[in-house]
């Protein structure tokens, strides 16, 4: 019973983290049909940005809430700048090319940005445990839960609700839905697709960076964190269906719970299980759970 509860909580925490990272990836894919490998870089920049913020702010006796805010803001600012630069300078050149070519272009950007991180922050790792200590713990029965983890779940839920609301009820959201549904027609109706692309890419980048910032205190902020996160986010998005926000949510939950179960029950299969689930889902539903295949017409 205790194990089941621990699996549930761990799974939710992990799912929350996966969702925050994957939602930006799926948004960019849904609108722009770009599978953005550079999303891993956004995550890395967010994490390093948060580490910098932590270094500046914590251990000075200032109120903790301000520290959390600074982490998020600095990360999102980095995401905004990075996303804007990347979209304006590189992505713009390859719109309309093969989807595979665009993957490769973002892969190139990812490689470049990996070394930019070294240039800016150096090769050492950063201590980022302070927010975890500041948040404290809550005891639920025999289980001690970190408040930071609970906050992580809440943040993911908040992002899910906001993105659902934004797509459904805001003007920009409806524009996005139109572009996702049919790009040519949307352009013909006078929607500025170029602007929609820029905004989407930047929002996606900011979400990726936010994911990094939120995770920073829970991981060692060090070289190579983006490499790992990008394949995880791919798996989540592929399970849910690329371009689908609810898919990202369900995919994150599935992967989160499966991994937590593996960690508690059969730790040897921890990594295997994520991609195993992905392969299994794709075998049954090639385009993921929330995307239907388009029938061929002749």
């Amino acid at each position: 019973m205790l194990t089941a509860f621990a699996i549930l909580i761990d799974g939710l925490v992990y799912a929350a983290y996966l969702f925050i990272v994957a939602v930006g990836l799926t948004l960019i894919f849904g609108v722009m049909k770009i599978l953005n490998v550079a999303h891993g870089s956004f995550y890395t920049f967010g994490a390093y940005g948060a580490a910098t913020a932590i270094g500046i702010y914590f251990d000075r006796g200032w109120p903790d809430a301000g520290g959390f805010l600074l982490m998020a803001l600095l990360a999102m600012a980095l995401g905004l700048v990075l996303g804007l630069i990347l979209e304006r300078s590189v992505m713009r050149l390859v719109y309309g090319r093969d989807e595979v070519v665009m993957v490769l272009v973002t892969y190139a950007a990812f490689l470049i940005l990996e070394d930019v991180v070294i240039l800016v922050w150096g090769a050492q790792s950063y201590p980022t445990y302070q927010p975890l200590l500041a948040a404290g713990n809550t005891a639920v029965g025999a289980l001690i839960l970190s408040n930071y983890d609970l906050g992580l779940i809440a943040t993911a839920a908040l992002i899910a609700v906001i993105s659902w609301w934004a797509l459904k009820f805001t003007r920009y959201g409806r524009l996005l839905t139109a572009v996702i549904f049919d790009r040519e027609t949307a352009a013909a109706f006078g929607i500025n697709v170029t602007a929609v692309y820029t905004i989407t890419f930047v929002i996606g980048a900011m979400l990726g960076a936010l994911g990094g910032a939120i995770m920073a205190p829970k991981i060692a902020v060090t070289l190579g964190i983006g490499v790992e996160v990008i394949v995880l986010a791919f798996a989540v998005v592929a399970i849910g269906g690329m371009g689908s926000i609810e898919g990202a949510l369900i995919g994150a939950l599935i992967v989160g719970i499966c991994r937590a179960a593996a960690v508690h029950l059969v730790p040897q299969v921890e990594l295997f299980v994520i991609y195993g689930v992905m392969a299994l889902v794709l075998m049954i539903r090639p385009y993921g759970l929330f995307v239907r295949a388009q029938p061929r017409r002749i």
Binding site: L35, E99, V100, V103, V231, F234, A235, A238, M242, V269, E270, L271, F272, V273, I274, Y275, G276, M278, A279, L282, P286, Y287
Partner: peptide, 16 residues
């Protein structure tokens, strides 16, 4: 990209 992603997943299974 579905081909690309699925082959990636399979290789990551082996890695895991």
């Amino acid at each position: 990209i579905f081909f690309a992603m699925l082959s990636l997943a399979l290789s990551m299974i082996l890695y895991g």
